[in-house]
């Protein structure tokens, strides 16, 4: 029973990873792509980690994968933030149909 629950959680994680990758291809510019990549890939990877924990229980492997979850949750948005800011400062433009850009006035 626990095995099935773990496998289902891993499958949901992989599905969200897949949505993130589809978003990476379909969305128009750097900033929108970062949105899809950060959100879906973070939760997808956390799902896989949590599934491994459910499958293996409280042993060396399970605890390690459980500790990885807060690390991913801390580092992944930070990396997205750095990439978005770096791209803007480097001069990557927003998509043509973007509604507004209040960051431009700040520079």
């Amino acid at each position: 029973m626990i095995d099935i629950a773990g496998i289902i959680i891993i499958c949901v994680g992989v599905a969200f990873d897949l949505f993130g990758c589809i978003g990476l291809i379909r969305l128009p510019d750097v900033y929108n792509r970062l949105q899809a990549a950060t959100k879906c890939v973070t939760l997808g990877t956390c799902g896989i980690m949590f599934g491994i924990f459910v499958l293996s229980g409280f042993n060396s492997l399970g605890i390690k994968s459980l500790i990885c979850i807060p690390f991913i949750l801390l580092t992944s948005p930070t990396a997205a933030h750095a990439l978005a800011r770096g791209a803007y400062i480097f001069g990557v433009r927003l998509w043509d149909k973007s509604r507004m850009d209040e960051y431009k006035a700040n520079k």
Binding site: Y31, L34, Q35, T38, K39, T42, L73, L74, P77, T78, A80, H81, A84, R85, Y88, Y103, N106
Partner: peptide, 15 residues
């Protein structure tokens, strides 16, 4: 706060 905003629906903190 910036990390939380990045993980909420449809938003990504830039600076």
């Amino acid at each position: 706060l910036a990390n939380s905003i990045t993980m909420t629906p449809g938003t990504l903190s830039v600076d």
